[in-house]
Design a protein around this nucleic acid. Structure first.
Lengths: 165, 165
DNA sequence: TCCACTTTATTGAGATTGTCAATAGTTACT
DNA sequence: AGTAACTATTGACAATCTCAATAAAGTGGA
């Protein structure tokens, strides 16, 4: 029998809070989701920071680059952010000439957000860095597992009909 | 022929930003993880709020109830929060008599956080509510899928040796 | 057409959260 | 004994969230 705080020789040097993994919260999907996301987010933020971006601005830039020509309201709804936060995000990207506001031809109240050539260029290099850093984290899963995870997360994230399309 | 903004009877009434799901970001595991987490978090916060808690305080309470007797430093490390945030969290729970700070017998610098009887009671009822609301979200997955997801998230979340134990 | 109502982007206030440095008391090392 | 490292705490400051208010533009009747 071992003392609860002791462990065998093969034990990975319990860094102090490891023992809290015995708690009931770690059997909570929402908790694990939050924790996995926190790690992934920290990693992605560090990667994006090497290009002067955060995941937020990186994501907006990615959508702008996609030529979907979203309005700010659509961005707010899709990213689940307050419209006023989109204003700040687009302001910053526009001040760096990575993105441009264009009038929506079908609604003069709305702006449409499009990437500049410079925006496309910095997105390309930022994407390389970010995708690389994510590979590191998701390397804990096999290729098939990643596919399965993506399919599950799409459903949890409320993606429209993941089956069709 | 339908107007692009119109749709068939079976179509889920595209709420405006649905078309952004055609973007490349939705093929990004980190993005989907963040979005799924945002939804789950909002739901859990609403559920916990009916008991005067947030997910943060709910989680700390859950760990306190587990009789693991964590120090504040262990809580900070495990929850990836700054130690000063743990102070605020424990202050609040302690002011509501749900939790108590006890001196760590093995280190007089450290406090150990334990639940009071009242803390156990409110945790029990809060847990019922929160677990219920989570069931609603994760109902998008089958039981086996949830097991698979949990195993994957544990690895991504950095759980120690998910295989043994 | 005129009028009330809604919607889009924007600004700004106030609360919440994240991050960091400094400190008092304690422990660990030599 | 003395130096260095660690724990909890406080306080400052930045970043983020959440809301309300507003101007400009669309919507849908009477």
């Amino acid at each position: 029998m071992l003392n609860p705080t002791e462990s065998l020789a093969t034990a990975p040097m319990l860094s102090g809070s490891e023992r809290l993994w015995a708690t009931s919260v770690v059997r909570d999907l929402a908790f694990l989701l939050a924790r996995a996301n926190a790690l992934s987010l920290a990693q992605a933020n560090a990667a994006a920071a090497t290009h002067g971006l955060k995941v937020r601005s990186y994501t907006v830039l990615a959508i702008a680059v996609s030529d979907t020509r979203p309005t700010q309201r659509e961005l707010a709804e899709f990213l689940r952010l307050d419209p006023s936060q989109i204003v700040a995000l687009v302001d910053e990207l526009e001040s760096r000439a990575l993105v441009r506001r264009e009038p929506d031809p079908s609604d003069r109240r709305a702006n449409v957000v499009v990437a500049t050539d410079e925006g496309r260029a910095t997105y390309a290099s930022a994407h390389a860095t970010v995708a690389d850093s994510e590979r590191a984290i998701f390397a804990a899963l096999s290729a098939e597992e990643r596919t399965t995870l993506m399919e599950m997360l799409r459903r949890l994230a409320g993606a429209p009909d993941a089956l069709s399309a």
